[in-house]
Write a protein that binds this DNA or RNA. Structure first.
Length: 492
RNA sequence: GUCCCGUUCGUCUAGCGGCCUAGGACACCGCCCUUUCACGGCGGCGACACGGGUUCGAUUCCCGUACGGGACGCCA
């Protein structure tokens, strides 16, 4: 039977990077096995679900390059099927009506409620309606008395399954409550919906976060009660914050949201690559992997069991996200095929009003060479419009530290650079070699070290103390603009 | 509280009884390259949580302890 997996997020906010990784692993497994990767939006919590969130999930998957097969499924559309299944279980005596009135239920917060139950240490099979005779149950229901539907879990025995990642799992029935399938208002609950939909969609492998490991036992009970084939399960270790706590938007902000990476200049392939390495290791140790290589090497067996810490420094702008993610992005930016990078740079420049249509035709060669030159030391696509601004516009800022270090420190420089400008003005043709020759000749004539002029000129031309070889910069900026910038008094 | 899961360098991880004086990647440090900064090259720092077993031999298997995480809802 061919593999069918799914990614089933609830649309209650941005796409979390942990969820994104689940999606990636499901996708990789489907592509690896020639199976199908399906997308199901679990929007049954009407209060919290939003259309905007659904959109951002779909966009996020698209950004990561995770295409899904078949039609998108909205879980809310299947509510009638979920209710029907619950009623079937009721008819078959596998579930029962719980008439416990709403008022009797604890009005506590979730945590308090759990603590309360823990203290009470009640028998999971103690519900007074569990063994209500069918006639009475039917009569009270017919009379309009509200009821929830609970699964009747056998007091004896245990559920078992062999998790592909975590190995054999066993849980005694005595640890499992008679879970509610249908709320008293008829609304189907999560565990029921998931199982019914997974059956309907023909899911063969459920790959999801480890936080569902214990839910799995309840779901298996449902598969069995329904007489359905139980799929294989593979639970993924969790991604934790630096303090080993749960990674959450409320506590950690935008660093956990996938869209942040898009907005802050990540190359999708780089982030996908980084995500794949969180909890999974390629067999031969090669870590920079294309989409095709990822698919080729991926296996569920290669997934580790320990939770991974996503390392970032909240108050350090340079380390706003994991070091390795940033490194991976830089690696992609400097080594990916130039033709794939160019459109991304174009988008970035456009967004910052630095794009000129000529870069697409008359100046396309200039644009290619310039991007190829400066990409070598950039970390994100943002750098093209920020640190790289001087390559695309005459209107750029000067870095104070660079000005102090390379210009103000030597009072004669103002005069010297103006002289260098005069010298450059007559250089023809103007390229790396001729610019270098001219600068060195000028250094000899004036008796100063070439380095003084080189560093000074770099700052005059780019506003920065660091960057590519000065002579490459001259060629990129061009003679006229170079001369003009050398004469400019702006930074002084 | 109960149940479940986990624990190798700061971080991501390799390791599935001898190949381990524990390998790689990121980060950090040093040197080389470079009249800047990166890249690259070379080198360094740096880990098997602890205690018992089993075994000729444990990072690897078993038990316990500690620590961490998860689940326990008429949320998903």
């Amino acid at each position: 039977m061919s593999v069918r997996v799914r990614f089933a997020p609830s649309p209650t906010g941005y796409l979390h990077i942990g969820a994104a990784r689940s999606a990636l692993f499901n996708w990789l497994y489907a592509r690896k096995t020639g199976g199908k990767f399906l997308l199901r939006i679990e929007d049954t919590d009407l209060q919290r679900s939003t259309e905007e969130s659904t959109r951002s999930i779909i966009e996020g998957l698209e950004w990561l390059g995770l295409d899904y097969d078949e039609d998108l499924v909205f879980q809310s559309a299947n509510a009638p099927a979920h209710r029907a299944a619950a009623n079937r279980l009721l008819e078959g005596g596998k579930a029962y009506r719980d008439f416990t009135p709403k008022e009797q239920r604890a009005e506590l917060s979730v945590k308090e409620d759990i603590a309360e139950r823990a203290r009470a240490n009640t028998d999971q099979r103690s519900n007074p309606y569990r063994d209500l005779p069918k006639e009475e149950s039917d009569r009270r229901a017919a009379a309009g008395e509200p009821f929830a539907v609970r699964l009747k879990v056998s007091p004896e025995g245990q559920t078992k399954f062999d998790d592909i990642v975590y190995g054999p799992q066993e849980r005694s029935h005595s640890e499992i409550e008679d879970l509610v399938l249908l709320r008293s208002d008829g609304h189907p609950l999560y565990n029921l919906s998931v199982v019914i939909d997974d059956i309907a969609m023909g899911i063969t492998h459920v790959i999801r976060g480890q936080d569902h490991l214990t839910n799995t036992h309840k779901q298996i009970l449902l598969y069995e009660a329904l007489g359905a084939t139980v799929p294989r399960f593979a639970h993924l270790p969790l991604i934790l914050a630096p303090n080993k706590g749960k990674l959450s938007k409320r506590k950690h902000g935008e660093v956990v949201s996938l869209t942040t990476y898009r907005d802050r200049g990540f190359v999708p392939a780089a982030f996908r690559n980084f995500l794949a390495l969180l909890g999974w290791a390629p067999p031969e140790g090669k870590e920079v992997l294309s989409k095709e290589e990822l698919v080729e090497y991926f296996s569920l067996e290669g997934i580790g069991r320990a939770n991974a810490i996503f390392n970032f420094q909240e108050n350090d702008p340079r380390r706003w996200t994991d070091d390795k993610a940033l490194w991976m992005n830089a690696e992609y930016i400097r080594t990916m095929p130039l033709d794939e990078l160019l459109p991304m740079v174009k988008t970035e420049l456009r967004a910052n009003k630095l794009w000129r249509e000529e870069y697409d035709d008359d100046d396309s060669e200039w644009f290619r060479k310039t991007v190829d030159l400066i990409r070598q030391r950039y970390f994100t696509l943002k750098d093209f419009s920020q640190q790289g601004r001087a390559y695309f516009s005459d209107d750029f800022d000067f870095d104070e530290a660079a000005v102090n270090k390379n210009l103000r420190k030597e009072p004669r420089l103002r005069e010297l650079l103006s002289g260098l400008a005069d010298k450059m003005e007559s250089v023809e043709p103007f390229n790396i070699e001729t610019a270098e020759a001219a600068l060195r000749a000028f250094a000899d004539e004036t008796g100063v070290k070439a380095g003084l002029l080189i560093n000074g000129a770099r700052t005059m031309l780019t506003g920065q103390a660091v960057g590519p070889s000065m002579f490459e910069i001259f060629e990129r900026i061009g003679r006229d603009a170079s001369v003009q910038r050398l004469r400019s008094g702006i930074p002084w």
